[in-house]
Every structure is written in C-alpha cells, then in structure tokens.
Design a protein around this nucleic acid. Structure first.
Length: 549
DNA sequence: GCATGATGC
DNA sequence: AGCATCATGC
C-alpha cells in the first residue's frame, strides 16, 4: 500500500466557516507538492486527480488532525477518512502534554526544525517518517488496537458530531437572558442596600472587604491573596447576615446569564439556528473527550432554573426527537471489574442500589434500615474511592473529622477487600513503571509518584487510583460511539449522534426510526466491552434536552 | 496570564 | 477529592 502524507491549509472557523486554501502532498520516495486552492479551482483535471487520491482506498493516508481534515474536506464534497493521525498517536503516547502541534512532533521525534515559512508540501514530507516512529512506539507499548480500533475511527465520529451541530431556540434563550438580567438588577440593589455601599459584586476582592471588614462576618477560609468567598464559605455564613443568601443567588444567576444564556447566544449560527461545539480528543490526561465553544458537557442540570437552559436545546425538525442513553454507575462498575471484588460484583449483578448497599456494608446495618442520610454518606465514600480516597478529602466533603473519615474508609476497605488490594497494586505499579493503564491499555505517566514531597506524592497516588477508572470508562463509551456510528451508517439511518457527556450519548432521531435506533444504541452501549459486571443503560426521549434530563 | 469561582461528570 | 471549560477581575 502506497503511503501519502497530507497537510491541509485552511482558514476560517470550524465547521461552517472552514475553507480549504491549499493541499500539501508527499508520497514515499517522491518529491512533495503544494497545490493552492486556486489551482484546484482553475484546473478541473488536477482537482479530480487530487481528490481521487484523497479517497483512494489503496493509499495509506497520513494526516495530522484527521478530524479537522475531514471537516475541511466535507465542504468540498469529500468523505475523507485517514488511516494514520499523527496527532492522535502522539496523544496516546503521552496524554498529558499541553500541545500536539505538528512542528513540535517533528522536532521531538525526527530532530528537524521547521521554519514558520515552510509550506504545506514541505510539512507533508515529514508525515511518513513521523508515522513510522510513532507507529513503532504505539506497537511497542501495545496501544495499536486502542489507536486503530478506537481513537482513529472515533475522530470520524467526532467530526460528524461537530458538523451536525445542535439546534437551539434563540428566542427562548433571549427570554431567559432577560429574565436573569431583571433578577440580577433587583438583587444588585438589594445587596448594595444591605452592604450600605455600592461595590463590584463580581470582584471577590471587593466582596471579601465588604463581608469580612465592613460587615465583620467571621473569616472561615483564606486564599493566598485574601479572603475566600466561594459557595462553601457563603453556605456557612448563611445565618450570619441576610446579604449572604443574596450573594449566593446573585452568583448563580450571573453564571446562568453570562456563561449559558448570553454565552450560548453568541455562538448560535443565525442561518442554521445551531451551535457547533468542538469535541476535542487530545485534551484530557485520562482519555475523556472535552467540549468547547460551547462546552456542552457542563450545561446545568441540578436546579430547576438551570434545567431551563437545557430546554433551549431541541430536536432538529418537527418530526424528530432527542434520545439520550446514559450508563448507570459506569465508574463503580469499572472499579468492580478492575478489582474483581466479589461483593461489589455481586451488588451489580443483583441490580442493587449501590449506595444503599455500600451504606449497609460500611455502617453494618441491614439495607432496609439505611436512612437517606446514611445513603448520602456512603455515596460520598463511593465517590471518594473513585477520586482516589483521602481522609482529608472525605472529611471536607462530609463535614466530619479526618478521624471519622478514616474510620469510614477503613470500614469500606475491610468490606471490599479486593478494592484495597487493587488500590495498593495500582499505586505500586505506578511507582514501579511510572505510569498507570486502562482496560484498553491507555497509558498515563505519573511523574510525581515517587516524589519526596508528601503533597505532590499523595496527589500523584490519587491520580494513579482515579485514572484507570475514569480512563476505562472513557474507553468504553468511545468503543460504543464507534459501534453505534458504524451501525447507523450500515443501516442508512438518518439518526445522528450529537453530544457525548462522559457517560451519556444524545442523538437526534426521526420519529419513525426511534425504536430501531434505541435498540442499536442499547445493545452497542451495553455490550461495548465485556466486564465482570453488566453495563446498564437508561434511556429517555423528548423534544428538548430538558425533557430527557 | 493567573486567580477565583461557577458549571458538568 | 479525580477530570474538564468559561466568565470575570486585576
């Protein structure tokens, strides 16, 4: 198979404004070429020859950032799928790097320094040797399957999600913005009145001076640069002065208005009435996907007012609906699988309420006698285990002493002994190898794991515990996404994957496809990766994201 | 550019 | 307490 390095020159914003301005090409044992967009436009023979090459199945296409290339070429009517993405390869080899630009990879792996002025043809000429180096490393580190079967095909899925976009109702957003604005104006006046002065409520510095100097409220927590005024502090001060509740409400509404109502409005495309998020595949150290402009992975859900924001995200057409499928307790199930703990596995096999079961174990009472307060505490312990438990963190979270927290943790680890073994082995492996791995052999280096600095080392140990769990959950949903995408394509369905929120997938589905789509999504998500416990997926259907939350 | 504080899983 | 992004102030 003949290999071809491809570097696209583009301008504009992805995906709607993205425009191809030129193509750099380089084949093995051949010169490299740069084809300006003008030449493609004016020479139809050249254009069809180049475009034929880009879709030739007998050519191994090597690209840096294939998702971007797929989006840029989609505008030209080309269904572009590359065979080797050097950006994704570099990410798997070290997911903690800040950047994965081609120039740095060429310098680090080939020792060549590119000048800024060099054209796309010259850059393309480095892709083949770079692919050889990165491909060899992936093979040596047993990440070939993760690369070829998961990350490479996933970039195509993410490209299509980005191009699909999500329909929003701008009028509804505008009304929410106005509603939040009016409430904020009212609150601002009330806060000035209660403070006895006007100040910038958005400035933590000025707010700290008002609360802790002018009003003499007790200082609960300090920051490097002064008083802390975060929600945790304000919650504790609630009874001390009526201004505190007003400030909490102000902060909440300000967040809703600036980030969600106004922030989202500024990103709505006026022609399509959609937002086009960027789903980034090379940002997180654990293997999760991230989302920006807008971030669709932190849209509010906990409060009623927050949920109204979700109400502006709607199905694309009148005869379409939104479908969500979310994994139930995926991270705890991954922990059950990785640790092999019989009691944890049994709880999931029997379909028990996992937090109630944990409460029953940790506090030594029958499950029927678990109060909601004890269940909440057990839930915090479960989260703590996933985050890499520390007595300090659990104590902080539950408002108990570190001694009590230590007792909870000990009790948990005594009841789930293989979890204790698993944690110990994982940290030991990290100390020995310098990295930890996921179910699919995704790797994360943990340089501080042998540090003599207690804080650095402890943090590294928590990272070592959390990464295999969070990262394996990321592996699983990524596999499911690729499977679902392929099944939709094979069956010629119009349904489209729109959003991924770590343990949840959201689809736009024509009404008449709903049942078949639901059954595909269910089986692909639940059987994505066989674990020692069942994977359970819950579904919701509605006209807006609010209705399926 | 960094710190703070909000949101999500 | 693990992983993120965004708005704001300074």
């Amino acid at each position: 198979k003949k290999a071809l390095g491809i570097v696209l020159e583009t301008e504009g914003k992805s995906p709607l404004g993205l425009r191809l301005t030129g193509i750099g090409l380089s084949a093995s044992g051949d010169n490299s070429y740069f084809v300006p967009e003008k030449a493609l436009r004016e020479n139809s023979g050249l254009k069809s020859a180049v475009f034929a090459l880009l879709t030739d199945r007998e050519t191994e296409k090597i690209v840096h950032d294939g998702k971007h290339a797929r989006i840029a070429l989609a505008r030209e009517g080309i269904d572009f799928v590359c065979d080797f993405d050097t950006m994704l390869a570099a990410y798997l080899l070290d997911p903690s790097k800040a950047r994965y630009d081609l120039e740095s990879l060429i310098f680090e792996n080939l020792g060549a320094e590119l000048r800024g002025s060099e054209d796309a043809g010259r850059r393309a000429s480095f892709l083949l040797p770079l692919k050889e180096v990165l491909g060899e490393k992936l093979k040596n580190q047993e990440m070939e399957r993760l690369f070829k079967d998961v990350e490479m095909p996933l970039s195509t899925v993410l490209a299509d999600m980005e191009m699909a976009g999500i329909r929003v109702d701008p009028d509804k957003l505008q009304k929410l913005s106005a509603e939040f604005g009016e409430k904020l104006e009212r609150l601002t006046g009330e806060i000035y009145e209660l403070a006895g002065m006007e100040f910038n409520i958005n400035s933590p510095k000025q707010l700290g001076e008002v609360l802790f100097e002018k009003l003499s409220l007790p200082v609960v927590k300090k920051k490097k640069s002064g008083y802390s005024t975060d929600a945790e502090v304000l919650e504790k001060l609630k009874g001390a002065h009526p201004i505190v509740e007003k400030i909490l409400e102000y902060r909440f509404l300000m967040k809703m208005k600036s980030t969600y109502a106004d922030g989202l409005l500024s990103l709505v495309d006026r022609d399509t009435l959609k937002v086009y998020s960027n789903f980034n595949q090379t940002i997180t150290a654990t293997g999760r996907i991230s989302s920006t402009e807008p971030n669709l992975q932190n849209i509010p859900v906990k409060t009623d007012i927050g949920k109204k924001i979700r109400g502006v995200f709607v199905a694309e057409k009148p005869d379409h609906v939104l479908l969500s499928g979310d994994y139930s307790q995926i991270e705890l199930r991954v922990l059950a699988h990785l640790s092999g703990d019989e009691k944890l596995i049994e709880a999931f096999v029997k379909g028990e309420d996992i937090h109630a079961r944990t409460a029953s174990e940790v506090f030594g009472i029958p499950q029927e006698k678990v109060t909601s307060q004890l269940r909440d505490r057990a839930k915090a312990v479960n989260f703590g285990i996933i985050y890499g438990i520390s007595d300090y963190g659990l104590a902080q979270n539950l408002g108990i002493t570190t001694g009590e927290a230590r007792e909870y943790i000990e009790s948990y680890l005594n009841r789930y002994p293989k979890v204790r073994d698993y944690i110990r082995e994982t940290i030991n492996r990290a100390k020995l190898n310098g990295y930890v791995t996921t179910i699919f052999n995704r790797r994360r280096y943990i340089p501080d794991i042998n540090s003599r600095n207690y804080n650095l080392r402890s943090f590294a140990e928590r990272v070592a515990m959390n990464t295999p769990i969070q990262g394996s959950a990321a592996d699983i949903i990524k596999v499911a996404m690729v499977k679902i995408y392929n099944h939709f394509k094979e069956m010629g369905l119009k349904a489209k994957m729109l959003i991924q929120v770590h343990d949840e997938l959201i689809f736009d589905v024509p009404q008449d496809e709903l049942e078949v789509v639901k059954s595909i999504v269910k089986s692909d998500m639940e059987t994505a990766v066989p674990l020692k416990v069942p994977l359970v997926v819950d579904f919701k259907v509605g006209k807006s994201w609010e209705e399926i939350s």
